[in-house]
Write a protein that binds this DNA or RNA. Sequence first.
DNA 1: TTGTAAGCGTTATCAC
DNA 2: GTGATAACGCTTACAA
Lengths: 322, 322
Amino acid sequence: MHKKITINDIATLAGVAKSTVSRYLNGGSVSQHTRQKIDRIVEEHNYAPNTFAQSLKQQVNHTIGVIVPRLDSIAQSDMLRGLDELNKNDTFLIVNIYQNSQRELAAIKKLQSQNVSGLIVLTANLTDDIREALKESQLPIVIQGQDEPDFHRVILNDMQAGQAVGQYLKTLTPKNVLLLKVDATLDRAVGHDRFVGIDDAVLGIPHKEVVTDFKLDVAKSDALIAMEKEKFDLIIGASDRIVVGAMQSAFSLHQQPRFIGFGKSYFSETVTPNLTSFEFDFFETGKQLYRLFLTIRDHPQTEIQRIVMDGKLVVRDSTDLM
Amino acid sequence: MHKKITINDIATLAGVAKSTVSRYLNGGSVSQHTRQKIDRIVEEHNYAPNTFAQSLKQQVNHTIGVIVPRLDSIAQSDMLRGLDELNKNDTFLIVNIYQNSQRELAAIKKLQSQNVSGLIVLTANLTDDIREALKESQLPIVIQGQDEPDFHRVILNDMQAGQAVGQYLKTLTPKNVLLLKVDATLDRAVGHDRFVGIDDAVLGIPHKEVVTDFKLDVAKSDALIAMEKEKFDLIIGASDRIVVGAMQSAFSLHQQPRFIGFGKSYFSETVTPNLTSFEFDFFETGKQLYRLFLTIRDHPQTEIQRIVMDGKLVVRDSTDLM
DNA sequence: TTGTAAGCGTTATCAC
DNA sequence: GTGATAACGCTTACAA
């Protein structure tokens, strides 16, 4: 209702100097008497400090830019939840760049011009431009995704993931395995690292490899083509979404192979049968990111940190039912 | 690398007054000569204005607080995408309140103290506290969700949704219908409005009503109990998630009823069979929200606006296949 | 075209 | 315990 009240207004209303009000607000020593007067006024007018003036004066602010590649993913929203979980005094300025590196570059620039006090980048793949822009920045920065040697980072142990799935695969004694991969040059962690252990495990087992795409439709039709030619009793996809595509193709072909996915998605427990999947704890990953960020913000000289998050295989009906 | 440079530094480096630099930056008249000098310096030092000082001076800023009830929902992320789509100069400060009204109240307070220039609230249900806090605020505010008469708002036409599903339902000539509702006192739009047309349509058709919960597990077990007692050939749920729960129960009972959901979710096209669902265009809803916000921000005296978004029934395999 | 100076709301220093 | 006063970086009359 009332116009925004300032420290100055309070001072005149209380008949004191603004510096006294400031002291009052910041817990300095104030006499009983003035304290009460100011108390009343602050209460009544619902005073809130002007954060711009504060930031300007104090030369610090508690806004952290968070760049996310997308929002419609459980991985991203869980990581954000992890950030929120540990947050006390910071404000996260979340920018969705819609998996577009142009937008990402623009976001970095814009966030810097907004004087954020640091950057948490959840995007996996840094282009040269972006890597450059981040390096030039004097801000504390933490990234999540690929294993970039020049940055403080929290990464997922995709190697371990592949090993675990490889081990498990053997216990299923499949007759013919279909591997749905993605282009390793676009996403090394997923396209390459995740499959090292699996490639090992399928040696000696009949199998076929198809390079497909993260999109559901593409994966679905690529899988369909492969499954029409020969029959598989185990299908492993580079991501849950890819596997769901394959499931739909299987359904339409009246086939019932077993399935293994990766990631942790909205799907694993809603598709039928529920999907066996190697899952990472993105919530915990978010917390680690924030901890790491605080560390390097408060100790700028810290040497480059690299935190690796392990995951675990969650066995559900898609490999268990039949 | 370099410490942050200010307008003052540029001025001394260029040997001019800082007001000249300011004029240069804001497109005022500057001579060829000085322009070039300043150009060089700005370029070289990668000058970016201090937004705090700017906002402090200009008494305006372009940060809009956006309160979302959750992030792991296609509805929310599509609305946010709608906001981004139309955005030119604003910065959205997104706060996830995790469907917790305590957090929501805190978020409103915090955003105000951060001097945002307005609020876009995507939460459906306002508690008295929150309604109060929003009313007291002198900021431009737009809400999405329930039909709150005192606020500028964009709402979904849940009445129309129910009518459309009711119409369609009749064409399916079901023998026995299961309606999975939610508590109307908690969410009137979903619990009540969505079912008006459906309740009409099932008059004269055998049917059963169960009040369940938005959570997948709860819906699943509530559906299971009902489905064990009698057999249904059509199941309608208040949300897609609820229907997915029912689908899983049907699967485990080896039943194959038809299904209709509401909302637009990550599930509709990943479950098998794909789900027939009444869908709203949340992307468009987000755009409308932003348009409405700009209108009321720029014309504070505008009378209360109410925008209604229609949706449409998308028929997929879950009612079509058998 | 350019410079001087005041002021945005806050904090901090330093006399009183 | 209190109150001038300067300063943070920027914009904006107004004067030169």
